[in-house]
Computed example of a mutant assay.
Amino acid sequence: MKKIVVAIDGYSACGKSSTAKQVASILGYTYIDSGAMYRAVTLYFEQNHISLTNESEIAKALENIDITFLVNAKSGLNETYLNGLNVEEEIRKMYISNKVSQVSSIKAVRDAMVAQQRKLGKKKGVVMDGRDIGTVVFKDAELKVFMVADIYIRGARRQAEYLEKKQLVDLEEILENLKTRDHLDTTREESPLKQAEDAVVVDTTFRTLEEQVEEVINLALSKIIDT
């Protein structure tokens, strides 16, 4: 059976990552969290006080950034490593969420991450989620999915994620963050968030995670059979 590339794009907190992880697991594919890569870069910039307007500082910093994914033996989930250190928990915190859209809009950052993402997906058999996977990273992906959901539902989901990690964040703060990220993601000059012409729209507002996963799996299987 031939392998394909599954590209899942969409807005924050629509269920992209949760869906992509399960789809990859069911298909036996590799899951690549492109958002985690940009979050890791953001963390590095924060820790090393990199100016987002200093091109030479950014270029030098990117040369020193190595991002890898390793599977946690207990949970079976991919975790993000920055220069050999597990940063999975740190990159999910609110202060990173507040900065990641700014960092990911920088051309040099996007060029570096897209190059890594294409390398990871060269052999196919991957599920990757993000903002520009179907429009930039893998324009020829066999399956492209674009996820949307009501912003209040998205906010409630994100708040629940924080609570699971024992982080108490006000819903209004989360909604403002989502609105800001939506604006930055869709209006940035470099690789803006937009639906690919051949993408299938999946509205997750009133769908459970299981229903989302089932729909994408069915779409993927139809592409695999046709490939």
Rank of each mutant, 00 (worst) to 15 (best):
E63A: 08
N72T: 00
K21D: 03
F69S: 12
Q22W: 13
N48D: 01
S17T: 14
A73I: 11
E55H: 15
V23Q: 04
G35E: 00
L52H: 10
M37S: 10
S75L: 10
S25A: 10
S51M: 05
N72Y: 08
L70M: 12
Y31L: 04
V71K: 15
T42F: 14
A61Y: 04
I32N: 01
Y81L: 15
G15T: 11
S25F: 11
N64Y: 03
D66Q: 13
I58K: 01
N54F: 06
L70N: 09
R39E: 10
T30N: 05
Y29K: 06
S25L: 14
E46I: 04
T80W: 14
L27M: 13
D66H: 15
K21E: 14
Y44L: 05
E46P: 00
E63Q: 15
Q47L: 08
N78F: 03
A24L: 12
D66C: 14
I58W: 01
N48G: 00
K60Y: 06
G35V: 04
I58T: 03
N64P: 03
G15K: 13
A40D: 03
N78W: 03
A20K: 07
L62Q: 09
G28Y: 09
M37L: 14
T68Q: 11
S75K: 08
L52W: 02
T42E: 05
A36N: 03
E55S: 15
L43S: 11
I58N: 03
A13I: 09
E63L: 12
N72H: 08
Y44V: 03
I65Q: 06
R39T: 10
E55W: 03
A13H: 09
E63D: 13
E57R: 08
L62D: 09
D33Y: 07
Y44G: 03
S34W: 06
I26A: 02
G76R: 09
Y38F: 15
F69I: 10
K60W: 02
A36L: 11
I65M: 08
T42V: 12
Y81C: 05
I58H: 05
Q22D: 13
Q22F: 15
S25N: 13
A40E: 07
E57S: 14
Y29A: 08
E46Q: 12
S51K: 14
G15R: 15
I50T: 01
A59R: 09
K74H: 09
S18K: 07
N48S: 00
F69E: 04
G35A: 07
Y38Q: 00
A61F: 07
A61T: 06
Q47T: 01
S56Q: 13
K21N: 12
Q22G: 04
R39L: 10
T80P: 08
E55V: 09
L62F: 07
T53H: 11
L43W: 11
Y81W: 12
E63K: 14
K21L: 07
G28Q: 05
N54Y: 07
V71C: 01
G15V: 12
R39W: 12
L62I: 12
T42Q: 06
N64R: 02
S25G: 00
E79Y: 01
I65F: 02
A59G: 00
T42W: 06
T68K: 12
A20R: 05
K21H: 04
N64T: 02
E57Y: 13
V41P: 02
G35D: 00
S18C: 07
L70S: 09
F69D: 08
Y29E: 02
I58P: 00
L77Y: 05
I26L: 12
S75W: 13
Q47N: 11
L27R: 09
L52T: 14
S34M: 07
S51A: 13
